[in-house]
Design a protein around this nucleic acid. Structure first.
Lengths: 232, 232
DNA sequence: GGCCGGGTTTGACCTGGATCAAGCGGCAAG
DNA sequence: CTTGCCGCTTGATCCAGGTCAAACCCGGCC
């Protein structure tokens, strides 16, 4: 790995409090790999050989069973995946594919496990990362089981708007069919849900969304900090 | 806490490799509390003051939103809950209630966070615990999104049978309405699902279940190690 | 410009499962 | 023994959302 790559890696939240020396050691067997869009990075059922961290780009986590497939989450820069499988030395539960051209940092599982045992600051970072990931999945499970598709969409729009500066106007960060998968619905259902939101003054034209009456949308969505707030 | 209580606690998987001295320190602010059946142990949204560990009994984790409620999991002896909230010092995402009279070990959150930083063996135990919990939720999410109610029931029966010695005959460990919640369906739907399983030679009489043709049931259930195997 | 092809929308239909309502045992208190 | 109550089942109906099929839109390319 090039040394300015290492610089970049050191800035990841996960390594924030880890001493430079330890980061260096970790990076010894690591790659910073470039992937084109739409490739499978990891397939469920395989052995967890590397911890993966999205440095750049976007990655979709999904899982298939029989003839069904479901998206479990979409990750952006700074987020890691399959940490739990790496720590436990188990099989991946999910597959991952790139949605955009992406740069992925891959650290050998062995090095992570050793680092966890030897470097308390790294252990802390990994523990927090895992705890956050855990809470995210729990939120997702609640989101799925306690809400209708329309409600999930409404809440997603609200969080997305908040993330992009609450201007009431933003672009979808990926195709609608990916969004549909992300929200756990068929593309057709998403389309109809968008149509239904017209009554709440949400206007969609291609990839751009305008929310003209946040209050109305919020009343429908009934957001909850314990499901939607990424920081809670 | 009484000293034979401490003995018992030391045998928990979580503390297996932690030195007796450290366990002792942890237990200083801890309680081993008894609860009757059907009481709320923690409520979602509250601050995470204690790590809870089920020493004895059974606990249901659930969450409510608007007028809906959903069961997220059922825990038995040896399992901890709300570890992630404790580590991050955040709010509980789920509520918990006892299904049976239960003994719960409650360790102050502060002590757990300090212990994580200071005792590598405890950090390891907590990390593994959290990683297992994470994988369990992911499996549950897949179970929910990739299967019908009937399939979930079929798989639950198979796992339960395996857990109880593969005799093809066992008792339900809790009321059917709790099982229905656990499987994410209405009690009526569970009832019909059981009825439908008669065609696969599954016989239910009150709380006892007999599987007379495991192969037929397995063919329907199509179990997957990456969803159903608790050890994977 | 005209011809794809993929993403998206719309319509018609179907299914899993929730809801509502009523019946059915069994058991515990009177 | 009777009365209630509770857990469970059964029947009827309803609704969210999946599936299938067709139309539509739009950008890229010959």
């Amino acid at each position: 790995m090039r040394s300015d790559d290492i610089e970049e890696v050191r800035r990841l939240r996960l390594f924030r409090d880890v001493s430079p020396g330890h980061v260096e050691t970790l990076m010894r067997g690591a790659f910073l790999q470039r992937f084109p869009a739409h490739v499978e990075l990891v397939r469920e059922g395989e052995r967890a050989d590397f911890l993966h961290i999205v440095v750049d780009g976007r990655v979709e986590m999904f899982s298939a069973h029989r003839d069904r497939e479901t998206t479990v989450g979409v990750l952006g820069p700074g987020q890691s995946f399959i940490l739990a499988a790496v720590l436990l030395d188990r099989l991946y539960l999910k597959s991952a594919r790139s949605l955009l051209p992406s740069r992925i940092l891959m650290i050998p599982a062995e090095a992570i496990r050793d680092g966890f045992a030897q470097d308390p600051m790294l252990a802390r970072g990994l523990g927090e990362e895992l705890a956050v990931a855990y809470r995210d999945v729990v939120k997702e499970l609640k989101n799925q089981k306690l809400r209708t598709g329309l409600e999930r969409l409404a809440n997603w729009l609200l969080t997305r708007d908040a993330e992009t500066g609450s201007s009431g106007r933003f672009e979808l960060p990926f195709d609608k069919k990916v969004l549909a998968a992300r929200l756990g619905m068929a593309p057709e259902a998403l389309s109809r849900a968008f149509a239904a939101l017209a009554a709440y003054r949400v206007v969609v034209q291609g990839p751009t969304v305008a929310i003209h009456d946040v209050e109305a949308l919020r009343k429908l969505a009934q957001p909850s900090a314990l499901i939607d707030d990424p920081a809670s």
